[in-house]
Simulated scan of single mutants.
Amino acid sequence: MTMGASGVGSFDNDDAMDWVAELKGYADDSPIVDALNTVIDQADDYLEAPECFNAIAAAEVVAAQSGNPHEDCPEEIEVWVEGHPAPSATRVAQARQALEVILAESELKGLWKDSGGLDEWQGAMEELLSRLPY
């Protein structure tokens, strides 16, 4: 897999957009919890890029629920967020933890490092973290 086909943005890849498309079929936030926990639970293992993309998209939903959506937030997320309350402090903490795991060590980080786009990608992830209030 090369990173040339996708940008550093949270939604610049097919995995994230597939996850977003599936989210609208759920009334609850179980896909968000599942995506974040998949990454958190594998913190000591090798994290594959698709799980990273899904968790990043899930963290974007949490940020949008917190009133801090991405400037390129897909309409599907905006619509989903309208029908759901602000996230709990626990959910925000899970989103932050998942991002920190991905930033620490993951296939996705390795791919960005190999492509020479690591700094730009890390900047995009830091920007997302800044939209997840403590």
Rank of each mutant, 00 (worst) to 15 (best):
G4F: 10
G4E: 11
A5T: 06
A5Y: 06
A5D: 05
G7V: 03
G9E: 01
G9W: 01
N13S: 10
N13W: 02
N13M: 07
D14E: 14
D14F: 13
D14T: 11
D14S: 15
D15P: 02
D15Y: 10
A16P: 08
M17P: 01
V20M: 00
A21F: 11
E22K: 15
E22F: 14
L23V: 11
K24R: 13
K24N: 08
G25Y: 10
Y26M: 10
Y26E: 15
A27G: 12
A27N: 14
A27Q: 15
D28A: 12
D28C: 09
D29Y: 12
S30H: 09
I32Q: 02
V33W: 07
D34G: 05
D34V: 05
D34E: 08
A35I: 05
L36M: 06
N37M: 13
T38D: 12
V39N: 00
D41W: 02
A43S: 12
A43E: 13
D44H: 06
D45V: 09
Y46G: 02
Y46P: 01
L47M: 08
E48P: 02
A49R: 05
P50N: 09
P50D: 10
E51C: 10
C52A: 11
N54Y: 01
N54W: 00
A55Q: 04
A55H: 03
A55S: 09
A55E: 01
I56H: 00
A57Q: 06
A57G: 12
A57R: 06
A57F: 04
A58R: 12
A58F: 14
V61Y: 07
V61G: 03
V61T: 09
V62F: 04
A63E: 08
A63L: 13
Q65Y: 03
Q65F: 04
Q65K: 15
Q65I: 07
S66R: 06
S66L: 11
S66Q: 08
S66Y: 04
G67Q: 05
N68A: 10
P69S: 00
H70C: 05
E71T: 12
D72R: 07
D72C: 02
D72M: 04
C73R: 00
P74H: 03
P74Y: 00
E75S: 15
I77Y: 00
I77F: 03
E78H: 04
E78R: 05
E78K: 07
V79D: 02
W80P: 00
W80Q: 01
W80H: 03
E82F: 10
G83D: 14
P85C: 03
P85K: 05
P87T: 11
P87S: 13
P87V: 09
S88P: 02
A89L: 06
T90R: 14
R91L: 15
R91S: 14
R91V: 15
A93G: 08
A95C: 13
A98S: 12
A98R: 09
A98Y: 07
